[in-house]
Design a protein around this nucleic acid. Structure first.
Lengths: 210, 210
DNA sequence: CGGGCAACCACATAATAATGTGAGTAGCCG
DNA sequence: CGGCTACTCACATTATTATGTGGTTGCCCG
């Protein structure tokens, strides 16, 4: 028996969901609430397996509710429920540990399937959400930018610079003379088109050389 | 009629998939290949709607094949097919524009459903993959770390440091004396627990202060 | 009103970093 | 072989940073 808690401000929808889920074999709705004002206490009191969490709610909304729950409970499965596959919310929800993200227009059969899937550790999402997630992922990742053709030794020096080493420390770390470190660094500056340590460090981060 | 192309080195599995898909209403397998050696030419010649792409193949593998296809064709839907929900491959596949990622053990019924879903712009993935993706996403994002309680002015100075400004430049940029810049920076170092410009810059990036 | 704090400025000294010039060794490639 | 590059080292000079000590002003808050 999968124990479900529902957060949804629209009374009709909340009732509808409760009916649907309670009426299905193997599912039980413990309670439903219209916002997350007391979410932590409620979750503790009812100890559900899965929480259906609407995002747009007056008072404490779903994202904030998600955060509050995750602050004290990382076990319970939380399925975000929303009308739009809105970019910002999806992002926030998944970065804050939501287990799935589904649209309200999901057909009843699918919804039950999703709840069950979440309960067993899956990450259910509707197709449109999944597409969004993939897009975000691929857009935020790529662009390793230029390569700058740093030699192995130069990369190594840059790595140490980034870690806050001084020339002296780099020299002893790499078993070379400090003047050699200097010449490596000079070469690095040329290749990166910068002329100070901190610019090089910044560029190393930006262009993900390190 | 959804036109499918299959890349899979195991002859039995390739045959099996072909039978299954071809034998289903609304699906047609145009051809099957055992590696991606000529993938670009093949995709051009057959012009499929969906490509099933195994990852582990001798010769040109699935990830490389994916890249090659995407270099010339961003329209065709590509479903990656693999035995393991291996972190690195999932990541690479989705950053390179795969439309979905499913496990080989997916039951036949689901597989057809996934192909249809991909064809209509969805992003099918098996539950275990979806879970992985969410985990990656949330792990790479969060952690704004400590706040370090930098004052507004200190944040501003740090910002300029990151952009490669010298003390002198910061002073003129902020219309304050260079000694004031020094004292701000000293305070920043204390708060960040570092003692050099480049460490501060590195920390600013890592902890996303800037 | 007095203590705490952010922001401002000054002077001084030591340590590091940046720049220039020059040079030797070793390996790769046409 | 001769040219190229990576890697190594040296010496010298100037610029920039790091650190210490100390002081003024103005604001907020109990």
């Amino acid at each position: 028996m999968i124990k479900v808690l529902i957060y949804e401000d629209n009374p009709q929808l909340r009732e509808g969901l409760t009916m649907l889920i309670s009426g299905s074999e193997g599912f039980d709705v413990l309670a439903g609430f219209k916002n997350c004002d007391n979410v932590v206490a409620e979750v503790e009191a009812f100890n559900p397996d899965v929480i259906l969490m609407d995002i747009d709610m007056p008072g404490v909304n779903g994202i904030e509710g998600l955060k509050r729950i995750r602050a004290v409970n990382t076990q319970v499965k939380i399925l975000m429920l929303t009308v739009f596959d809105d970019n910002k919310n999806v992002f926030q929800a998944i970065s804050n540990g939501a287990n799935g993200y589904i649209l309200k227009k999901t057909p009843p059969g699918k919804l039950l399937e999703y709840i069950a899937e979440a309960q067993t550790g899956g990450a259910p999402m509707t197709a449109s959400i999944a597409t969004q997630v993939l897009k975000m992922f691929s857009s935020m990742n790529n662009e390793r930018g230029e390569d700058y053709n740093l030699s192995d030794r130069e990369k190594q020096v840059l790595q140490l610079l980034v870690e806050g080493f001084s020339y002296k420390m780099i020299a002893s770390d790499m078993f070379i003379a400090i003047d050699t470190v200097r010449s490596h660094i000079k070469k690095i500056y040329e290749k990166l088109h910068v002329n100070s340590k901190s610019e090089a460090v910044a560029k190393a981060f930006k262009d993900k050389i390190v």
